[in-house]
């Protein structure tokens, strides 16, 4: 397969996954804000959110104060923000357009339709309930692209690069979501148990893990179990352990003469998650652990680019 084609497929999948996770992050923030909290807390939530996805400076580039409605617009539909849902879906569509011949007609049409529809949305015209519906829609379209791709694409290299893109992005995004919310909830001023329960369940909902938590633990929600579920559970499809395991699998499928060191690093990371214990993770501090994890994921992303996606020297 052409390196450029692989590159477009990989980034198409990454941008779709990123858009979905942005919708998840915005959704959980909205839910958390339904609880009574001080203005300072609200501001802190948005600042930490923007910071966690590397957009705080860009946000402040044009604004002094963090206003929730503006932050939502900035992250969802701001066309000038390259990190917004809008920009991610545009980038996904442009990548798809560049390799539309490699995609099945259904997959291309799904992505193109998402893009055509997205351009009709406007935050200014949306009430809170419509915002919820919008985030649901983004998630649903992402599920649809993945589903159509799963059901129609041949199981060849193209499929492997799509999956690689999906799982490396999801690993990164889950780590960021967990990091910022875990920190936020733990540092919030102590209130009653109900409020804390509500915060944790909002986080679990945001990564579609609420029901899974119930099923796995059959017990009350505690921070360390939330961390264990999202970091170490192999069977939790958005956990770091699961994502790295999938990365390792799809990387092995496309292996070439240059990629053995990349495979080793992914395998090592996946194994440390598969056999790790949450006590050890929490002892180093979850924030430190996740920061290191994101660094390693970035390193793997760079290596995938040089091994497969960058044109080799003539």
């Amino acid at each position: 397969m052409l390196s450029r084609t692989a590159d477009h497929l990989y980034w198409m999948a990454r941008y779709i996954e990123r858009a979905e996770n942005l919708a998840r992050i915005l959704d959980v923030n909205n839910r958390m804000l339904l609880l009574p909290q001080s203005e300072r807390e609200v501001e802190r939530l948005w600042r930490e959110t923007l910071d966690s996805i590397g957009l705080l400076d860009a946000y402040h580039g044009t604004r002094d104060k963090i206003v929730p409605a503006e932050a939502v617009h900035f992250m969802a539909l701001d066309r000038s923000n390259p990190g917004s849902i809008y920009s991610c879906l545009r980038a996904a569509r442009e990548n798809a357009h560049a390799v539309r011949g490699t995609l099945t007609a259904e997959l291309w049409e799904t992505i193109n339709t998402t893009w055509l529809k997205l351009r009709e949305y406007s935050i200014e015209r949306m009430g809170a309930d419509e915002l919820d519906a919008f985030f649901e829609w983004v998630k649903l379209r992402s599920h649809q692209s993945r589903g159509v791709s799963f059901a129609t694409m041949m199981r060849d290299e193209a499929n492997c690069f799509l999956r690689l893109g999906t799982f490396i992005e999801r690993a990164d995004n889950t780590a960021r979501i967990l990091d910022v919310k875990y920190n936020f909830i733990n540092e919030a001023p102590r209130r009653d148990d109900a409020s804390e329960y509500y915060q944790w369940s909002a986080l679990l909902h945001s990564v579609s893990a609420f029901e899974i938590y119930r099923k796995v633990y059959r017990d009350q929600i505690t921070p360390s179990r939330v961390a264990e579920l999202l970091v170490l559970r192999n069977d939790m499809p958005r956990s770091l352990a699961h994502c790295t395991m999938e990365m390792s699998h799809f990387l092995a499928e496309v292996a070439n003469q240059r990629s053995s060191e990349t495979q080793r690093r992914v395998g090592e990371l996946a194994a440390s998650l598969r056999y790790g214990r949450i006590e050890d993770v929490l002892e180093t501090g979850l924030h430190n652990y996740l920061t290191r994890f994101i660094t390693r994921i970035n390193d793997i992303g760079d290596r995938i680019a040089t091994d497969f996606l960058m044109p080799v020297a003539a």
Partner: peptide
């Protein structure tokens, strides 16, 4: 394959495309 110029290169008067497998 649908290729663009930069996907191809010439070595020893032969044309190659850059793929994930070399």
């Amino acid at each position: 394959e649908l290729v663009e110029g930069p996907d191809l290169f010439v070595r020893d008067e032969q044309v190659f495309m850059r793929t994930t497998q070399g």
